[in-house]
Design a binder for these strands. Structure first.
Length: 417
DNA sequence: TCTGGGGTCCTAGGACCC
DNA sequence: TCTGGGGTCCTAGGACCC
């Protein structure tokens, strides 16, 4: 281990929006929003010109149009995002093999083993930024420091299109005046709670006894944040672990929960989730369904099965039972979202799924029903591989394209199983 | 004019076991 | 007789991140 700022955090600036401006020069220098429209939907990403007006990701389109009158809404080129981000990651991989990709557009790098090849961290960061700009055409900000937490904060401070290197002797002065909201793990709720105690900066937090912070934020969060504020961050750069859950959800607008609607939507979601599981040879025991009602109030219901499942129809049936439980116990009225998640994952060889156990129970993966269902799934998976994801499915064609953002966007957010 | 979709981790109570 | 304590799993909810 080196004592220098050998951890880099590289973060593409306003990634989706920057890609759109790269692809369409007429959009450069202008406030744009990817996704949504002035009439509805949500903004997925905003260019820096739009952010200057207060537009941000997750904001409803109508509000974005109001705060930024000159805003241009563009449809996303979702397949290009993955391709361009992968090219950036390849460049990072040329600088060190020790990369931890956090999401489509950001990654940690440990360059301690690359110093003899490329020079000091600041120089490596310079190479990184220049290559991404020259070879891909995108702006990327980099923070370099001795720990991941510091590097991540440094990259946020460096934005847009900048580089901040925190030398070990400057760490305290660097952290002291920054707002607590910049820390990883401090969201709106924690920020508000801390503010109520007069804690606004990371320096304030560092001066507050750990026991007091734990009382305000709870044991785990308080302990972690206290340590980070005191600049104690032992985390290493590691290759990303396997996913612990797989899920899918669909916003519905406002719909009366009829049996037909619930079955159709859950069938669609179950198919997305189960086919991803099967593609990776995984299965899960715990099924969770979330139902959102009016006013964003939601209920979850879950069940843990005796055996892991990865079959579309079985998952649909389990999810239906849970959804009706939640609907029955909810506030009544219309529903606005359905979600399925499968956790407690294990690796599942197909041959195990086909072992006959108790033929009468379709929840048993090896049952006669289970084998038949697995065969149906296998042929659907094959057709999908050949003809594309939308070529076959349980969902009626009338509903398939009616709700939500394009599937290409969903795929971007999927984690490696 | 009303809010997307993919995840991780923590807490707290209860069941159950030894 | 009237009661300990630890560990693990399950369920529901919630904060947070990209």
């Amino acid at each position: 281990m080196s004592g220098g700022p050998t951890i880099l955090h590289a973060d593409l600036d306003a990634f989706y929006a920057s890609v759109e401006q790269l692809l369409e020069p007429a959009l450069r220098g202008r406030p744009i929003a990817v996704g949504g429209s002035a009439r509805g939907g949500v903004v997925l990403a905003a260019s820096y010109e739009a952010k200057a007006f207060g537009v941000s990701g997750g904001m409803p389109g109508w509000r974005a149009a109001r705060v930024c009158p000159g805003l241009t809404f563009v449809r996303g080129h979702f397949h290009r995002y993955q391709e361009l981000a992968d090219r950036v990651m390849d460049i990072l991989g040329d600088l060190t093999p020790a990369i931890q990709r956090i999401s489509i557009d950001e990654a940690f790098l440990d360059v301690s083993g690359s110093l003899h090849l490329f020079g000091p961290p600041a120089h490596i960061a310079g190479i990184l930024r220049a290559r991404v700009r020259d070879e891909v055409g995108l702006p990327i900000s980099v923070g370099a420091a001795r720990t991941k937490h510091l590097a991540k904060i440094a990259s946020q401070v460096a934005k847009p299109d900048g580089l901040v290197v925190v030398e070990p002797e400057d760490e305290h002065t660097f952290l002291e005046p920054l707002p607590v909201g910049l820390m990883w793990g401090v969201g709106p709720v924690a920020e508000r709670r801390l503010a109520a105690y007069g804690i606004h900066t990371i320096g304030d937090l560092a001066r507050t006894p750990g026991s007091a912070v734990e009382r305000v934020l709870g044991h785990a969060v308080g302990q972690r944040l206290s340590a980070l504020a005191l600049n104690d961050d032992p985390r290493r750069v590691v290759t990303s672990p396997r996913a612990r859950s797989v899920g899918a959800q669909s916003a519905l607008g406002r719909r009366t929960p009829s049996p037909g609607l619930v079955r159709e939507v859950l069938g669609h979601l179950a198919e997305r989730v189960a086919s991803r599981l099967r593609a990776k040879g995984r299965a899960g025991r715990t099924v969770t369904v979330r139902v959102r009602f009016a006013a964003m109030r939601s209920l979850t219901r879950s069940v843990t099965l005796a055996e892991p499942i990865a079959t579309t129809l079985t998952l649909t049936e389990v999810a239906e039972r849970l959804a009706w439980q939640a609907i029955a116990e909810g506030p009544g009225g219309e529903i606005s979202l359905l979600a399925i998640s499968v956790a407690n994952l294990s690796s599942q060889r197909v041959v195990q799924l086909e072992l006959p156990l108790t033929p009468e129970d379709p929840l048993r993966p090896g049952s006669v029903t289970g084998v038949a269902r697995l065969a149906v799934d296998a042929s659907m998976d094959a057709a999908r591989r050949r003809y594309g994801r939308d070529s076959v499915g349980y969902l009626p064609a009338t509903l398939r394209h009616a709700v939500g953002p394009p599937d290409a966007f969903r795929e971007l957010a999927e984690r490696e199983l």
